[in-house]
Simulated scan of single mutants.
Amino acid sequence: MTRVLVSGGTGYAGRFIVEHLLERGYKVTVGGRTAPEPCFFSKDVAFVPLLLDPEADQIEAFDNVYYFVHAAFEHLPGRYRGGEGDDPDGFRRANLDGTVRLFESARDAGVRRCVFLSSRAAYGPQAAGALLEEGMLARPDTLYGEIKLQAERSLLSLCGHDFVTASLRATGIYGPAGPGRTHKWASLFEDYLSGRIVPPRIGTEVHGEDVAKAVRLMLEVDTVRINGGTFNVSDILTGNREILSILQRVTHCPHPLPEQADASGYNPMGCCKIQSLGWRPGGRYLLRRTVEQLAG
């Protein structure tokens, strides 16, 4: 049974990754500041303390680990862009320097593959309406995006025949949260059902289960097809109107829906590269099913 260490495994995205790998027979160890609560996952997982600290020697955390999935990120609760608050230096030290130290420790410990959960924010502003593709020039305009891009490049510099690496630029991850936690649209649902005005909004979204499938693909596909690569992980362009229209149908809420947001200048993400490896997201069927589930 192959052992995988998932940093940030109790986080919103990390939980999907852990659950998916458990279902597929992987032996999962969760790394983080605190151990998961009992029954947080559907099956038992091992735990090792793991910090985003560039000064910490944590190579022992990688003992007997074959794969490392790095999904941990230190930020203000509920915020990624702007998650540095009033401490940008600490934010950079943890999320860039601490991340690179973990990459180096994984390589030095003999880990065979490393997958980094990056972000759409690495692209930064692009021409209005342009399709975001992995080969285009990235120019992040936020500290969050800059750190994600620099971490990608640091991981790329470490890749080799014995240390296969890949970065996944995910965005808008949605789906049910773990036990005792609220999903990302909880406040949106509450505002709409309470009759508050909901502004128009659009964005690229992908279900957490589809992100987890992309991670597993990076662990299983032939190394020559992914090593050192960056892959977009996105599914649909949607917004508050479509999401709430599903909620409206399920709840029979009489409140009006928000206006349709203008999508003409938005930058969708191209996913041909990862789809060529066999990745298929759930599309609008999965969005509808998930909103119906969350509405219940």
Score class of each variant (00 low, 15 high):
residue 3 R to I: 01
residue 8 G to H: 04
residue 12 Y to C: 01
residue 13 A to E: 06
residue 13 A to N: 07
residue 14 G to C: 02
residue 15 R to I: 06
residue 15 R to T: 11
residue 18 V to N: 09
residue 18 V to M: 13
residue 20 H to W: 09
residue 24 R to F: 07
residue 33 R to S: 14
residue 36 P to L: 06
residue 39 C to P: 01
residue 42 S to M: 05
residue 43 K to R: 15
residue 45 V to A: 08
residue 49 P to Q: 08
residue 53 D to K: 01
residue 55 E to S: 13
residue 57 D to P: 06
residue 58 Q to H: 13
residue 58 Q to Y: 14
residue 59 I to L: 09
residue 59 I to Y: 07
residue 62 F to Y: 13
residue 64 N to C: 10
residue 67 Y to D: 15
residue 71 A to Q: 12
residue 81 R to C: 01
residue 83 G to Y: 05
residue 85 G to Y: 05
residue 85 G to P: 10
residue 86 D to L: 10
residue 88 P to K: 01
residue 97 D to A: 13
residue 97 D to W: 02
residue 98 G to T: 05
residue 99 T to Y: 02
residue 105 S to L: 11
residue 107 R to N: 08
residue 108 D to H: 12
residue 109 A to R: 15
residue 113 R to F: 10
residue 122 A to Q: 11
residue 123 Y to L: 00
residue 124 G to E: 03
residue 125 P to C: 04
residue 131 L to C: 08
residue 135 G to M: 08
residue 137 L to C: 07
residue 139 R to M: 03
residue 142 T to V: 03
residue 144 Y to A: 00
residue 149 L to R: 11
residue 150 Q to V: 06
residue 153 R to F: 13
residue 153 R to K: 15
residue 160 G to K: 08
residue 161 H to M: 12
residue 161 H to Y: 08
residue 163 F to T: 05
residue 165 T to N: 03
residue 166 A to Y: 06
residue 167 S to M: 09
residue 169 R to Q: 07
residue 169 R to S: 00
residue 172 G to I: 03
residue 173 I to P: 02
residue 174 Y to E: 07
residue 175 G to H: 06
residue 176 P to L: 07
residue 186 A to F: 09
residue 186 A to W: 01
residue 188 L to C: 10
residue 192 Y to P: 11
residue 196 R to H: 15
residue 198 V to M: 03
residue 199 P to T: 07
residue 200 P to Q: 08
residue 200 P to E: 13
residue 207 H to Y: 14
residue 208 G to V: 10
residue 208 G to M: 08
residue 226 I to P: 11
residue 228 G to C: 10
residue 231 F to T: 02
residue 233 V to E: 07
residue 236 I to S: 04
residue 240 N to F: 03
residue 240 N to M: 05
residue 243 I to F: 06
residue 245 S to Y: 05
residue 247 L to Q: 08
residue 250 V to T: 13
residue 255 H to C: 00
residue 255 H to S: 06
residue 269 M to V: 08
residue 275 Q to E: 15
residue 277 L to R: 12
residue 278 G to K: 12
residue 279 W to A: 06
residue 282 G to L: 08
residue 284 R to A: 01
residue 285 Y to Q: 12
residue 286 L to V: 09
residue 294 L to T: 03
